[in-house]
Amino acid sequence: MPKPLAVVLARRTLASLVELVLRHCDIETASTPSVPAARALLDDPNAALLIVDSAVGPAAAELVRRLRPERFGTMALVDLEAGGSSSAAFTSGADDVLRLPFTPDELAIRAAVLLGRLGRPTKVARTGALAHAALNLDEHVSIDATRVALTPSLNSLLYVLGANIGRPVTLGDVRRLTWGMDREGNAALLGRTVAELGRRLGPRFNVRGTRAGIVLSSVVA
C-alpha cells in the first residue's frame, strides 16, 4: 500500500519541522504556505492528513471545514501566545489541536493516532536519520554511534534546526517552535542554550549564529 500523504499548510520553517517529525511515522509530506495549493495537493489519492498552522488565517479554517471527515484527518497547530485559539480550531472542524511549541514525540504520536482512526495504522519509529546523526524522540541523539543525552528543550531545538539544516532559523522562530524556550528570555540566555546544543553535538556539527538567525550544519570528517 502506498504511504499516506500529509499536506502541511504552513510557512517553510514550521513545515520543515513537521516534515522531519513525520518521517518517524513513515508518512510522505507535501508542504505549502498557500491555501489554494494545499487544496490542490489534497486531490492526491494518497492524501490522508491535513496539518494546518492556524496563523495562516480564515481561509485555512474554511479549508478544514470543507474536508470530508471520513477521508481526511485534520490537525491544527495553534500558537496561543500569538492569539491562536484551540476552541476556534475545533469549531472549524479540526480533529485534533496541537499547541505551539510542541515536542517531536507529541506530533508523531498524534499523527499516528489520526491515521489509525482512518483505518491506516502506522508505527512510530523512535529514531530518524539526520546527516551523521540518528535523532531520537526520547531526548537523545546518536552521532557516529556515540549516544548523547539531551534535555527535552535541547532535543526540540535540534529538531527545529535540523529540519532546516543549512538554512538560518530566525530567533523569533527558534523561540516560537522550540519547546521549553522562554519567548521573553534575553538574547544571552538564548545564546547559551544554542551554545550548549553545539557543545553536546561535538565536532560533527556546527551551530552558529548569523545575522539571519541560527544555522545548523554538518561537518565532513
Rank of each mutant, 00 (worst) to 15 (best):
V7I: 02
L14I: 00
R211K: 09
D53M: 04
D79I: 07
R68I: 01
A6L: 01
N206E: 14
G198H: 12
H24N: 15
R126Y: 03
V97C: 02
V64F: 01
V78P: 01
F205C: 05
S87A: 12
R117C: 06
P36V: 05
L49Q: 05
T103H: 07
A88C: 06
R39A: 14
D43T: 11
L9I: 00
R147Q: 02
E81C: 07
A221P: 14
R176V: 01
A59L: 04
I143K: 12
E81Q: 09
T122H: 11
D95G: 03
G209N: 13
E196M: 14
A60V: 03
A48T: 13
G73C: 04
N136W: 03
L158S: 03
R11A: 10
D43H: 13
L154N: 06
R175Q: 10
T127M: 15
P203C: 07
N46V: 04
N186I: 02
A149E: 08
L98M: 13
T146L: 15
D79C: 04
P104Q: 08
S85L: 06
E184T: 09
D95R: 10
V97S: 11
V160R: 03
L171S: 14
G116I: 09
A125N: 14
R199E: 13
G166P: 07
N164C: 07
A134V: 02
G128D: 13
R110H: 13
P36H: 03
P58G: 02
E106L: 11
V21I: 07
D43Q: 09
D138Q: 05
V52W: 04
S87I: 12
R208N: 08
A111E: 13
P2E: 15
A82P: 01
W179P: 00
A94E: 07
R68T: 01
A15Q: 02
L135T: 11
D173W: 02
R99Y: 11
I109G: 02
L137I: 11
L50V: 00
R11Q: 15
A187F: 11
R65S: 07
A133Q: 06
V7L: 02
V97P: 07
D96K: 10
R147I: 10
G84Q: 04
L150D: 01
R200L: 15
N164L: 08
A125S: 12
I109M: 15
S85N: 06
L5D: 07
I143N: 05
A48F: 14
D144A: 15
V160A: 10
V207I: 15
G202W: 01
L114T: 02
P104H: 08
A163G: 15
E19D: 12
G162P: 09
T170A: 13
G128V: 11
A212F: 01
V141S: 05
T127V: 13
R167N: 10
L17Y: 12
A131E: 15
E19S: 14
D95N: 06
V18N: 06
L216I: 09
L14A: 00
L189Q: 14
A108Y: 03
G172P: 02
F90S: 05
V113D: 11
P101W: 11
G93C: 00
P58A: 14
V220I: 10
A188Q: 12
S16P: 02
E70H: 14
V160W: 09
